[in-house]
């Protein structure tokens, strides 16, 4: 029997692949899939007192969520902030990647390492440094007041949606830079030259050749920025004030001082579903778009 198994194993690639994959798949199942499943089931329970939970099935938490103006508006705001952040990050990072892909000849690698280096420093510290910059007694305000340009500090800089958007754009830059660069660098430059030789203007060449060919990178960047920023906790907590609060701050409260685990679980599930819908829509649109181009 063992012999049979051994000879089967020796010939079967999938068997070998799955035995190599098993630790990772077990990890994902035990530490993510099962916990997520349990979180989902908690969203159908009821918190009856501070320590007690009624385990009978109900969808009331979801009704609670959608009847709460606060929660719905925070969900909408989280999605809105993430979309703005994604768009601004893409728009500002694209020219940089374009420059490195097409104009830099020597040491491209070094440019890329330098671009991604700040991303590796602690997220908490990067967010904190924006607090230093935007604060009422921070870098911008104190400099402007010293220069005599202001008499009172600008208060809208800090504890606002704007502060959250600026900080997140800075924090997630690397997630736009990497996929954009990869897709731009793959473009065969002779295609661009050919378009130019055939009489297309710079703008037309970009619009008809470069942009469509870099689409995979754009989509990749949209997804890997949008998904995590929807659920960002640190930035709105440190810089958002009441105006820039997002859904994750409420989720944290439900698991912390408010102590309503089922409603927290329902909010987290709704966030996860939102993320899934956006992922599916973006991927589907891309597929259609790429089909039309090719």
């Amino acid at each position: 029997m063992l012999q049979v198994w051994k000879s089967f194993y020796a010939r079967s690639d999938p068997a070998k692949a799955y035995s190599l994959l098993s630790p990772a798949l077990i990890l994902v199942t035990l530490a993510m899939l099962i916990p997520l499943g349990l979180m989902l089931s908690f969203s159908f329970f009821t918190q009856t007192s501070f320590t007690e939970i009624d385990y009978s099935f109900t969808i009331t938490r979801y009704i609670d969520f959608f009847q709460s103006n606060l929660l719905v508006s925070l969900l909408i705001k989280s999605v809105k902030i993430s979309f703005i952040v994604t768009f601004v990050t893409l728009l500002t990072a694209y020219p940089v990647c374009y420059y490195i892909a097409f104009y830099v000849k020597k040491n491209k690698m070094l440019w890329l390492v330098l671009l991604t280096l700040p991303f590796w420093t602690s997220y908490l510290l990067r967010v904190f440094s924006w607090k230093i910059i935007l604060g009422t007694k921070g870098v911008i305000n104190s400099s402007l007041i010293n220069a005599g340009l202001l008499s009172e500090p600008l208060t809208f800089l800090m504890y606002s949606e704007t502060a959250v958007i600026i900080t997140l754009t800075h924090a997630w830059a690397a997630f736009a830079l990497l996929p954009l660069y990869v897709s731009l660098d793959k473009i065969d430059f002779s295609l661009i030259e050919a378009a130019r030789d055939l009489g297309l203007s710079r703008l037309e060449t970009f619009w008809k050749i470069t942009l469509p060919l870099s689409l995979p990178g754009i989509i990749g960047a949209i997804l890997i920025i949008f998904i995590p920023t929807v659920g960002d906790y640190v930035t709105p907590a440190l810089l958002g004030g009441t105006d820039g609060r997002m859904l994750s701050n409420m989720i944290q409260a439900y698991f912390g001082k408010v102590n309503n685990l089922p409603l927290g679980a329902a909010s987290a599930t709704i966030m996860l579903i939102t993320v899934a819908i956006v992922t599916i829509v973006v991927s589907y649109t891309t597929k259609k778009l790429t089909q039309r181009i090719s």
């Binding site: 994959l21 990772a24 798949l25 994902v28 530490a31 993510m32 899939l33 099962i34 916990p35 997520l36 349990l38 979180m39 908690f42 997804l223 890997i224 998904i227 995590p228 929807v230 659920g231 960002d232 906790y233 994750s248 989720i251 944290q252 698991f255 685990l261 927290g264 679980a265 987290a268 966030m271 996860l272 993320v275």
Partner: peptide, 23 residues
């Protein structure tokens, strides 16, 4: 399989945290 292993890197961290906390 590739997707499943990549998910923890892609979904909002707060959801992972909450799920592990609950279990």
């Amino acid at each position: 399989s590739y997707g499943a292993i990549m998910i923890p890197f892609l979904i909002p961290e707060i959801i992972l945290a909450v799920a592990i906390l609950v279990i």
